[in-house]
């Protein structure tokens, strides 16, 4: 089989911001769509990961454990071909993705030059310099409680810029990467209500579940609004840092939720009175389990956008 061009996409975010959960929800999200995009593992261990994680989210109803090692998955997004006017037959497009999911600690500012942190940074940089797609996860709840999103951004970002400059990969003054900034945990009542107060909710009419959504144009506004409540107030700098280092047309904001909202069983529609999709676990009082079926929101869109951008640039690593 002809070796398809592979695109490297790296997940970037603080520990517990939902990187592994987002990947776990990817195949469920694709199954929820009615176009025929699908995801297939390109080696046995990557497809094993897809099946395990999907069953963990749907039947096991539990969140993935904190990842301890930097994982690399080889997947292929297969979907409908480009529908141009002149195209007579429909061909399939296939985007080869190499997803890199590093534990959040890799991005943390290293306290002192401990050997391990050095090694972890090397490992991380090796991936980031190769990849041209980045999924940056901004966890508003963590930002509200701890406020260290900027710490997990500027360290690795400067190191990345240094390495790219050294390898002369800058494109007219900015990094060549395409970056999808995902605001996660949209299903948390505090985030949903913030969006509602700012009147950023625009329901998607043909969505039979009538989930509240934040359009891509408003997502940037919601990001700014959520940064304002940061515990250390350093969140505004995240926006500026992103604008400085990435081209304006290569940044896109998405408001995402890996587990989505709880749907009323009978009406299968969103119910403003009862939408929390988490239920406390009796056995271990503090534990939270996923309550109902999972309806990921905006989990596939960033991947597709990144895939298409990378394919367009013909950049294959």
């Amino acid at each position: 089989m002809a070796e398809t061009p592979r695109h490297h996409i790296a997940m970037w975010g603080a520990p517990g911001s939902g990187k592994t959960t987002l990947l776990a929800a990817l195949s469920v999200a694709l199954n929820r769509r009615d176009d025929d995009w699908k995801i297939v593992g390109q080696n046995p261990e990557s497809s094993a990961y897809l099946t395990d994680m999907t069953s963990a989210l749907t039947s096991g109803k539990e969140f993935p454990e904190a990842s301890t090692a930097l994982e690399t998955y080889q997947w292929a997004l297969i979907g409908p071909g480009p529908t141009g006017l002149f195209r007579r037959q429909r061909t399939s497009t296939m985007i080869g993705l190499t997803m890199v999911d590093a534990p959040g600690g890799h991005f943390a500012p290293s306290k002192g030059r401990t050997g391990g942190a050095e090694e972890r940074q090397e490992e991380l940089m090796a991936n980031l310099t190769q990849s041209r797609g980045i999924v940056f996860l901004f966890d508003p709840i963590r930002e509200f409680e701890v406020g260290d999103a900027y710490d997990h951004l500027h360290g690795p970002l400067n190191r990345l810029a240094e390495k790219m400059l050294e390898a002369d990969q800058f494109e007219n003054g900015k990094l060549p990467h395409n970056i999808a900034v995902c605001i996660t945990k949209f299903d948390d009542p505090r985030v949903l209500q913030t969006a509602q107060k700012q009147r950023l909710l625009s329901p998607d009419l043909d969505d039979k579940h009538q989930f509240p959504r934040v359009a891509v144009e408003d997502a940037r506004e919601l990001f700014r609004e959520l940064s304002r409540v940061s515990a250390t107030g350093s969140a505004e700098m995240v926006m500026n840092a992103l604008d400085k280092f990435f081209h304006r047309d290569r940044i896109r904001f998405y408001v995402t939720s890996s587990i989505g909202f709880y749907l009323d069983q009978q009406t299968e529609t969103f119910d403003w009175n009862d939408y929390l999709n988490l239920v406390p676990d009796e056995a271990d009082k503090a534990a939270l389990r996923i309550r109902g079926p999972v309806y990921p929101i905006n989990v596939v869109e960033p991947m597709l956008w990144l895939g298409e951008c990378l394919a367009k640039q013909g950049r294959s690593r």
């Binding site: 239920v279 406390p280 676990d281 009796e282 056995a283 009082k285 389990r289 309550r291």
Partner: peptide, 9 residues
């Protein structure tokens, strides 16, 4: 009713 999935609180 005991244990999951009954609400503990």
């Amino acid at each position: 009713t005991a244990g999951y999935p009954y609400h503990p609180h």
